[in-house]
């Protein structure tokens, strides 16, 4: 798709709701907007039903502003808090069964390659930690082993948040949640390292407190997935409801965790991805 396709049939322009006219006229389709431009264009998500201060909601907003090609991006989601918001997003999106997201994305990407061989179609999986690291780990890892050209983004709130607060594989060791009152008994899964070993061309861990870093990671992951193979971005997006944080404490928590080294950020760039980024970014990292 290109921006030329996102236009209203002239005979129905007068009845189209204002929101859609603005998406066409002031939206990010076909534009080179980024997080620095937030506030100056019509965003792909404006309303959502997530909790006040939700780290996941802020991360989604930043991810959507970072997409290099929003008009030709298809999001594949899974069960979880993010699924409640993704139906509000002005992008094509597919909600898959819990854990199936990378299998669905695989089929979708392969079909799009056949149907539109000369066009860029980005398939981006955005799912929570439960869907990515627990229930869907099989599908996630198999898609990496097969070197599928899809980007996997995990919104890691370290819990099954909308079912009352059960621990997930990504919950930190000893963390106490409503449904894990004794504290978690084993360490947080290091999925970033697993992704690297499993064949991802680019892996990043980041958080919404550093929006430009997050933007760069999302863009790089999508561009590398187009050209090379699977990529993985893990975003720490704390849940204020289950971790008993006030909305204004969420970003401070993110910063503290990074500072104390319990949620480090960083990148793994394969040799092929490095070559690609150097050609696209003029040698800058």
């Amino acid at each position: 798709m290109n921006k030329g396709l996102v236009k209203i049939s002239p005979c129905f322009e007068d009845v189209m709701p204002q929101e859609y006219k603005e998406l066409v006229e002031k939206g990010s389709y076909g534009q080179d907007y980024g997080v620095a431009d937030l506030g100056s264009f019509k965003e792909l998500i404006e309303e959502h039903p997530l909790c006040a201060g939700c780290g996941l909601a802020l991360s989604m907003r930043l991810i959507l502003a970072s997409l290099p090609n929003p008009e030709s991006t298809i999001i594949v989601g899974s069960t979880g808090c993010s699924a409640l918001a993704f139906s509000q997003v002005a992008l094509h999106n597919i909600h898959s069964l819990f854990g199936n997201q990378n299998a669905v994305a695989t089929g979708l990407k392969r079909a799009l390659k056949l149907r539109f061989p000369d066009e860029i179609k980005d398939v981006v999986v955005i799912a929570g930690d439960g869907a990515t690291a627990d229930i869907g780990l099989d599908m996630v890892m198999q898609s990496w082993f097969r070197r599928e050209n899809i980007t996997t983004i995990m919104l890691d709130n370290e819990a099954y948040a909308n079912t009352g607060g059960q621990e997930s594989g990504m919950t930190a060791e000893k963390a106490v949640l409503n449904m894990a009152p004794k504290g978690k008994n084993f360490p947080k899964v290091n999925l970033a390292d697993v992704a690297q070993v499993a064949g991802c061309a680019y892996v990043a861990t980041c958080n919404p407190a550093k929006s430009r870093v997050l933007e760069k990671a999302v863009k790089r992951a999508i561009l590398a997935a187009r050209e090379i193979g699977p990529t993985y971005v893990q975003i720490y997006a704390p849940c204020p409801t289950n971790y008993k944080l006030k909305p204004d404490e969420v970003l401070a928590t993110v910063k503290n965790r990074e500072k104390e080294g319990t949620y480090p950020t960083g990148e793994f760039i394969s040799a092929k991805a490095q070559e690609l980024f150097e050609s696209l970014e003029g040698g800058s990292k």
């Binding site: 129905f12 009845v15 189209m16 709701p17 859609y20 309303e47 039903p49 139906s87 509000q88 997003v89 002005a90």
Partner: peptide
Amino acid sequence: RVIPMPDYRPKYPMINPEVE
């Protein structure tokens, strides 16, 4: 009269029934 269905987003909390 014409009332459009531009897409299928549920758009919670509520759509504007006057125009869509």
